[in-house]
Amino acid sequence: MEKYVQIENVQMVFDTRKGPFVALRDINLNIAQGEFISLIGHSGCGKSTLLNLVAGLTLPSGGAMLCAQREIAGPGPDRAVVFQNHSLLPWLTCFDNVYLAVERVFGGSESRAVMKKRTQDALALVGLSHAEHKHPHEISGGMKQRVGIARALSMQPKVLLLDEPFGALDALTRAHLQDELMKIAADTKSTVIMVTHDVDEAVLLSDRIVMMTNGPAAVIGEILEVNLPRPRARLELANDSKYHQYRSAVLDFLYRRQLRPAA
């Protein structure tokens, strides 16, 4: 298997007031180009920590991380992040929020007109052409999250990183955006790492589900390969026995083997 993202023996220790806190240890994961990976685990186990490491927002305390054969030494537009809380800049319109990213990546090589087109295309991809001149506070939570995705996609990243992108949305909007993300990922052949705590979301979208043990010192407990043919349709899968097997496997991991002690 081709290794596009390589995570080798990565360990993350935070310095806290109570002394060092080991969040992650012995993390080994190779991700192929075009693969869709979900990170699942109980809250506080270190999913965001791992995603931030790939993003380069934090550097590992030990081990090595590579993306496209190059060491991850810091954040960069080749690894676009969709944050849980959309993180749009409230003083910029949707267009300008996306344009900021486009300008950063393509500003050196492309004319304004081309970059404008890129921005509009990215917004069209998430179905938000009509909202390009609106400010974030004028649109719904689901639309904000879509602008966040458009911003990330507009950069044509090597890897798309999503941290519980749909966690704050209602079930209908979430389902709709999951379908959209699935389609976009397929169309753009993106390599995706998505943090989630939603079992159905993980099974529906992923090629592999990376299940993490409870922290502290969380490790990868198990990796589940999801061999469901694509394109996947939510309704058909509801009656698919394989789908239910995958689903129970994840549930079993989360609620039997990693049952959280009552907090």
Binding site: P75, G76, N85, L89, M155
Partner: peptide, 20 residues
């Protein structure tokens, strides 16, 4: 969050100042 956006986009100091 805003500073993370700046970091992920690798914005220049000037852009960070004017846009964020």
């Amino acid at each position: 969050d805003y500073m993370n956006v700046a970091k992920v986009l690798n914005l220049s100091e000037w852009k960070i100042f004017t846009k964020i």
